[in-house]
Design a protein around this nucleic acid. Structure first.
Lengths: 157, 157
DNA sequence: TATTGTTATACTCTATAACTATA
DNA sequence: TATAGTTATAGAGTATAACAATA
């Protein structure tokens, strides 16, 4: 029973390969006892330390209520710290702890290994070309660098 | 407060742009009162008509129990038909109705429009290059043509 | 006994809204 | 009164397992 093979557009391929990439990365960071949501938050906190939870939520496009248990878990593991803002004591200033910074180093290693396996079939030149095309699409589509759109909808990967 | 801008790898860009592409496509087909899960099933049924629900579930990588309400909804709308297999009456033979085939034509139109907007920033030559690179990665990673990996984990996007 | 399809239950996850503390 | 953070509730969606029909 042979299947008809419809022409698959680049948009579908992007969604398909992108979901696969997210899935594989999820498996890798699971070895560090981290979920994609946690890594996304850690990455944002690493990029911009000291922000309030409301600000973080807005940047991730997620309701603030989702951040509370996320921050709770990472704080209990000693990866991030909530410090009270002296000027406005309603606000927290969320920062990475030393352990958190060390863990982000391991996340970066996992990301590098992930990068290699995902693009293993390409030559170095082709990798550069792909990166350039994807960067231009990301910018054209108004995507925030380093922020996965999945946060806005609860679906991570 | 300027942010450090870490080097974003192609793997992350793939996940980010891919999730965005899936999100935008979801919005487009919502105008046809369809979800990504429904479109994925319709596409598979269109490619290989007459298969049983168990076979469909295996190809989508999803538990068979998820297929039941999915098929139910599409059958009630008259888009697909469940016919009993005469040789083995435990099995259904799932097929597209005429309305279902017509709707898939509109889905294809939505997909084409989606394709144009997603790659609007690229030249024709660049579109071909991107399609070639993504196709090779998809094959190298063992992805099934036309099947979005999200089915296997419940997350569609 | 094995397999297809279905139903039922429990579980996870999410958002909405109400609540507390601070401004 | 307005805002940051938290908690509580209810809802949607999922998988696991039990069930009925057919082989």
């Amino acid at each position: 029973m042979e299947a008809k093979r419809p022409r698959l557009g680049s948009a579908f391929l992007l969604a398909q390969v992108g979901a696969h990439a997210a899935q594989r990365f999820t498996e890798r960071i699971a070895e560090l006892d981290l979920t994609p949501a946690q890594v996304g938050l850690l990455r944002l906190v690493a990029m911009r330390p000291g922000q309030s939870q409301q600000t973080l939520a807005k940047q991730l496009g997620t309701p603030a209520t989702r951040l509370v248990p996320l921050v709770d878990g990472l704080e209990k593991r000693g990866l991030i710290e909530r410090r009270r803002n002296a000027e406005d004591r309603r606000l927290y200033a969320v920062e990475l702890s030393e352990d958190g910074q060390a863990l982000m180093g391991r996340v970066a290693q996992a990301g590098a290994a992930h990068e290699r396996t995902m693009t293993a079939v390409l030559t170095d030149d082709e990798r550069d070309v792909l990166h350039g095309l994807l960067s231009r699409i990301a910018e054209d589509q108004g995507l925030t660098p380093g922020v996965h759109p999945g946060y806005a909808r609860g679906r991570l990967s």
